[in-house]
Design a protein around this nucleic acid. Structure first.
Length: 597
RNA sequence: GGUCCUGUAGUUCAAUGGAUAGAACAAGUGUUUCCUAAACACUAGAUCCGGGUUCGAUUCCCGGCGGGACUACCA
C-alpha cells in the first residue's frame, strides 16, 4: 500500500473514531507541504472541522496524534491553521529511491496483455504548400500525445491524412502548367514542397490581378472572384481530376511526389513518424458512397441543383453541404470516408484528431453526421483541439509573408545551438559528428520544449527571439542538467564506484534530498495525468520543476567529494534516478537528451 | 446576430476550490583554487470589472468589458 493511500485511510479512521464522521478515503485532500513549512505531506482538515465542531487547529492536532500513533513512517507533525503537515521518516524516502532506481520502466503504466487501440491523427497537411509553424505545433503535440498514451498502456496507431486532392492542389498545378517552364526540384534545387508552394503563391497573385482587372470593369468583388478565368480553369481541373483525366492525373502525381519527398525530409528532421498514412484521394470515394447511402436512408437530402446537404438544425447547428452541385466532394465528405475506412482497418477503441480549434465546428458536425449514418462510434470521436500559434506582431498571414516556415525555423534553431556551443567552448573535445548531433538535439529541444510547455488548449505567442533562448525554463536547461549528471556518473565509473546497489535506509539525508526523492516519486502520477488530460505541458512543467530543484542540490552539495561513503553512493543513486526520469520524460515530449553538451 | 474559446508581473507561461498567487525572460547585483557558470543566489513587479455559491474563489456560477475562432458549393 502506498503512503498517500495509507494516510488517507488513517485520516478517515481518525475522524470516524474521534468525530463519528464517515468520509470516503479518496475524498481526503492531500497535498505536498509548501516549502516554507516543516513537513512533507499535508492533510487539509477544513472539510471536517464544521461537522467535528472543533477549531481547525484542534482537529488537526487530534488527527495528527492519531496518525502518528498508527503509522511508524510518520515521524512528526505540526498544525498551522487548518493544515496538518506530516513529516515522513527519511528511511521511507530512501526505500522509495531504491525501488525507483531498480525499475527501468519507472513512470510507465504496466501494459495489459490485451491493449486497447487508440488511433491518433495528426499533421494532416495539404500538398499545395510546405509546412509552417502551425503544423509544427500540431506535429509536436500529436507525436508527444502518442508517446504519452503509450506510456499509459495504450496501443497507439499514429496516422496522418494527407489532403492530396482538392481545389487548392489544382491551383498549384494550374499555375505550374501556365507559368512553370517545366521547372522541377532537380532543375531548380528547390525542395519539392517549397517549389509547389511557390506556384500556389503565383496562382494567388495572378488570380488577384484578374479580380482587380474585373472590378475595374465594373464587376463586384464577389462576381469577380467567381468568374475570374483562373478560378474557372482550376475548377475545371478539379472536375477533370475526379473524372480520372490521364493528363491531369499525371501532373498531379508528379507534383504530389515532389511534395511527399519534401515532407518526408521535414518529418525526419522534426523526429515524427506515422504507422499508417491515409490519402484523401483514396478515401473520398468511400465518403461519397457513404453520403449516397445517407440520401437513400433519408438522413441527407439532395436539392434541385443536385447538391447534397445534411440538416443539423435540430441539433442546434446549420445545414451542411456534403456534395457540390457539380458532384465533387468537400472536406467533410472525405472525412466521413476516412473515418469509416479507419474503423474497417483497425479495432479502434478511441479515435483522436489532433486538429486546431478553428475546426471545432467541423468536428462537431462530423461526429453528428457519422452518428446519423448509423455508426455507434460517431459520437465518441475525440477532437484534441489546440490553440493557434501567433507571432508577436499578430497572426501569421501568407499574404504579408509573415508565415514562419518549418524547415527554416528548425535550421535556424540548430545553427544557433551550434554557435552557442562554440562560443561557450563546450564541445571542444568532440568530433565533428558529435558536435552536429548535439547541436541538433539542443536546437530542436529548445523549439519543441518552447511549444510543448504551453497548455495545448491555449493560443500561444511564438517569439522567435525567446524560443531560441537556452536559459531558464527551456529545453536546453533540462538537457544540460542531464548532461551534468552524466558527467558526474562517468567520473564515478572511472573511480570504480558502484552505485547500482540499494542504499542503506538508515543514513542521514537532508530535507533537500528527501524532497528530490518525493518529486521523483511523483513522476508516474504526472504521466498518468498528462495522458488523461492530453497535455504534454504537464510533463514539461514537471520536468522543469525537478531539474530546477536538482540544480540547487548540485550547487549546494558535493557528490563525488563527499567523505561519507554511504552518503556519496546515495547521491549518485539519486542523481542517476533523476537522469533516468529526465530522459524518460523528455522522450515523452519527443526530445532527446545528450550525454554531454 | 448566434455558438465556442480566452483574459494572471513590462513580456512569455504556472497554480486537483486551500496556506503569503509560483517560474522564466527582460533590468540590476553577487557567487568559480570545488563534480560542466547553458548553473546558483539576491532585489523589484500581477489575478480585467461587478455580483453570487463556499469555512475558503485565479479556479465554479451570473452579468459587464477586452481579445480570438467558427458560423463557405475553402481546407
Amino acid at each position: 500500500m502506498n503512503l498517500e493511500l495509507n494516510i488517507q485511510t488513517l485520516v478517515a479512521q481518525s475522524v470516524k473514531e474521534l468525530y463519528k464522521l464517515e468520509i470516503e478515503t479518496n475524498q481526503i485532500q492531500l497535498q505536498k507541504t509548501k516549502r516554507e513549512f516543516e513537513g512533507d505531506i499535508t492533510v487539509v482538515v477544513f472539510p471536517f472541522v464544521k461537522a467535528a465542531r472543533k477549531s481547525p487547529e484542534g482537529a488537526g492536532q487530534e488527527i495528527g496524534e492519531f496518525i502518528v500513533k498508527h503509522n511508524s513512517l510518520i515521524a512528526s507533525f505540526n498544525v498551522i491553521k487548518g493544515f496538518l503537515n506530516l513529516s515522513i521518516n527519511k528511511s521511507y524516502w530512501i526505500d522509495l529511491l531504491n525501488l525507483i532506481h531498480l525499475n527501468p520502466n519507472f513512470g510507465k503504466a504496466e501494459t495489459a496483455a490485451e491493449q486497447n487501440t487508440m488511433m491518433i491523427e495528426y499533421s494532416s497537411p495539404n500538398t499545395n504548400k510546405p509546412l509552417h509553424l502551425g503544423h509544427i505545433r500540431n506535429n509536436l503535440l500529436g507525436f508527444s500525445i502518442s508517446e504519452i498514451q503509450k506510456a499509459n498502456g495504450w496501443k497507439v496507431v499514429k496516422t496522418n491524412i494527407v489532403n492530396d486532392r482538392g481545389i487548392h492542389i489544382c491551383k498549384s498545378m494550374l499555375a505550374w502548367k501556365l507559368f512553370g517552364n517545366s521547372e522541377t526540384p532537380t532543375s531548380t534545387g528547390i525542395k519539392g514542397d517549397h517549389l509547389v508552394g511557390k506556384y500556389y503563391v503565383i496562382f494567388d497573385q495572378a488570380f488577384k490581378a484578374e479580380i482587380k482587372d474585373l472590378m475595374s470593369k465594373g464587376f463586384t468583388e464577389d462576381e469577380a472572384k467567381k468568374t475570374a478565368p483562373l478560378i474557372i480553369e482550376a475548377q475545371k481541373m478539379l472536375l477533370a481530376w475526379e473524372n480520372n483525366d490521364p493528363e491531369t492525373r499525371k501532373l498531379w502525381e508528379m507534383m504530389n511526389g515532389w511534395v511527399y519527398a519534401g515532407f518526408d525530409e521535414t518529418y525526419k528532421v522534426m523526429g515524427v513518424d506515422f504507422d499508417k498514412i491515409y490519402y484523401e484521394s483514396e478515401t473520398y470515394l468511400t465518403g461519397k458512397s457513404e453520403v449516397e447511402r445517407g440520401i437513400k436512408s433519408g438522413v441527407f437530402t439532395q436539392r434541385d441543383d443536385t447538391s447534397v446537404w445534411a440538416d443539423l438544425t435540430a441539433d442546434g447547428l446549420d445545414e451542411k453541404l456534403l456534395l457540390r452541385a457539380d458532384g465533387t466532394s468537400v472536406y467533410m465528405t472525405q472525412d466521413i470516408g476516412t473515418a469509416k475506412l479507419r474503423y474497417d482497418d483497425f479495432d479502434i477503441k478511441k479515435m483522436v484528431y489532433v486538429v486546431g480549434n478553428e475546426q471545432n465546428y467541423h468536428f462537431q458536425v462530423l461526429s453528428l453526421l457519422l452518428d446519423k449514418l448509423g455508426y455507434s462510434w460517431g459520437k465518441n470521436l475525440v477532437h484534441f483541439s489546440y490553440g493557434m500559434v501567433e507571432l508577436p506582431e499578430g497572426k501569421m498571414k501568407s499574404r504579408e509573408g509573415t508565415v514562419v516556415d518549418a524547415d527554416d525555423l528548425m535550421e535556424e534553431m540548430i545553427s544557433t545551438a551550434r554557435e552557442t556551443s562554440e562560443e561557450l567552448g563546450k564541445l571542444d573535445n568532440c568530433t565533428e559528428l558529435e558536435k552536429a548531433e548535439i547541436a541538433k538535439m539542443v536546437g530542436l529541444g529548445a523549439l519543441k520544449y518552447f511549444i510543448l510547455k504551453v497548455d495545448p488548449k491555449k493560443n500561444m505567442t511564438f517569439n522567435p527571439k525567446e524560443s531560441i533562448d537556452f536559459n531558464g525554463n527551456t529545453g536546453p536547461f533540462i538537457q544540460y542538467t542531464h548532461a551534468r549528471i552524466k558527467s558526474v556518473l562517468r567520473k564515478a565509473d572511472d573511480l570504480g564506484l558502484n552505485y547500482r546497489n540499494s542504499i542503506d535506509n538508515q543514513i542521514e539525508i537532508s530535507d533537500k534530498e528527501s524532497y528530490l526523492i518525493q518529486l521523483v516519486g511523483e513522476f508516474p502520477a504526472v504521466v498518468k495525468q498528462a495522458g488523461e488530460e492530453f497535455s504534454p505541458a504537464i510533463i514539461a512543467n514537471y520536468q522543469y520543476e525537478l531539474v530546477k530543484e536538482y540544480n540547487q542540490f548540485y550547487h549546494d552539495f558535493t557528490i563525488l567529494k563527499e567523505e561519507n561513503e554511504q552518503l556519496r553512493l546515495f547521491r549518485l543513486v539519486l542523481s542517476d534516478a533523476i537522469a533516468m526520469v529526465i530522459k524518460t520524460g523528455m522522450k515523452l515530449l519527443g526530445i532527446e537528451v545528450p550525454e554531454r553538451m
